Amino acid sequence: MAVYTPVTPAQLDTLLADYDLGTCIDFKGIEGGIENTNYFVTLEQDGKQTEYVLTLFEEFSYEEMPFFVELGQWLAQRQVPVPYAIEDRHGIGLKQLNGRPAFLQPRFVGGHRDQQELTPTNCASIGRALARFHLAGQDFFLTRQAHRGVFWWRRESENIAPRLSHEDAGLLTEEVRLFDELRQTHGESLPRGIIHGDLFHDNALFVGDEVEAILDIYNAATAFWLFDLAIVANDWCVNPDGSIDPARERALLDAYAEVRSFADVERQTWPQLCRTAAMRFWLSRLIPWLGISQASRQGGEMKLKDPDELKRILLARIAQPAVL
């Protein structure tokens, strides 16, 4: 989370006038994160203070947002702890603020865990939570193509290849080709549905050792469930050198399978999907790292993350194929 688009107290008061949630006594920008502008908002009503999160979306148009409004409310109604757009007194959750689509959402009370503090118990907890997320969304009535999915990485890998070393360009091109091959061979048989799409460790909150909430569902799309699990494994179970901690990964996979069993085709495709997940985030980090601007962001500098971290994970997944 971060602040790219400023919000004034007067603008916030105008938005809050549509709700019956109380009077604003404090709001402040949330630093950290990558894609959207976020504020903590404290409201007081009848002597009681309640905290909320206001999110302004930097990369989506107003017309793209109903999918996320419906998905957040759908999951929350099925006891999946995710942020969702709170409806105003007229039943409207999607707002517009400072030229950006915006939500007012509940704030969860849990805390983050640093990556190298994650334990097998933590990984088991997110495994169960992700499986419940997948099953809760399997009959969701809307679909969405990932905005950074297969067509995006085909195009962007070609665009940036001339700016990479010969070795890196070849690695990127080969991983894109291998996923195309997997998709052609197994695309019809791999279980799919709504995925989170960005469930890194900083998009979860903990109370004790258990996951209390899954945050930032705004990369959600209709895709292979196993790809979503591979994203988690590559982040939650990784060592500083890019290798995978087998104890954490085993805990993650076993806990997920307790809620949703794996199909045989998923066991077959898991090694490549772990590589594809690493490639996708290596590519999305390379683009801003190379100074290629993202025109959709209104203001502020994008916070950069080191692409070599994901390259190391990709190389580790190639050297030591994953086992489901």
Rank of each mutant, 00 (worst) to 15 (best):
M1A: 11
V3M: 13
T14Y: 03
L15F: 03
L15D: 08
D18H: 00
E35A: 11
T37N: 11
N38I: 05
Q45W: 02
D46K: 11
T50Q: 11
V53P: 02
T55D: 05
F57R: 11
F60T: 12
Y62F: 07
P66I: 06
F68K: 02
G72M: 01
W74H: 15
L75V: 05
R78Q: 00
V82S: 00
I86D: 02
D88P: 02
G91I: 01
I92A: 12
P101K: 00
F103N: 04
F103D: 04
R107N: 12
E117S: 15
P120T: 06
C123F: 07
I126Y: 06
I126S: 05
R132M: 08
L135S: 15
G137K: 07
Q138E: 15
F140Y: 12
L142T: 13
R144H: 03
A146S: 15
H147I: 10
H147E: 14
P162F: 04
S165E: 07
A169G: 14
G170H: 02
L172K: 06
V176Q: 13
F179E: 14
L182V: 14
S189L: 07
P191A: 02
R192L: 06
H196K: 09
G197M: 06
N203W: 01
N203I: 05
A204F: 01
L205T: 04
L205S: 09
G208R: 03
D209S: 12
A213H: 08
D216L: 05
T222Q: 02
T222M: 04
A223S: 13
W225F: 13
L226E: 14
V232R: 09
D235N: 13
C237I: 04
D241W: 05
E249P: 00
A257M: 07
A263R: 12
Q268P: 00
R280H: 10
F281S: 03
W282I: 08
S284F: 04
R285A: 14
I292W: 00
S296A: 14
R297I: 09
G299W: 03
G300P: 01
P307V: 06
P307R: 08
D308V: 04
D308W: 07
I313A: 13
I313N: 10
A316N: 13
I318Y: 01
A319I: 01
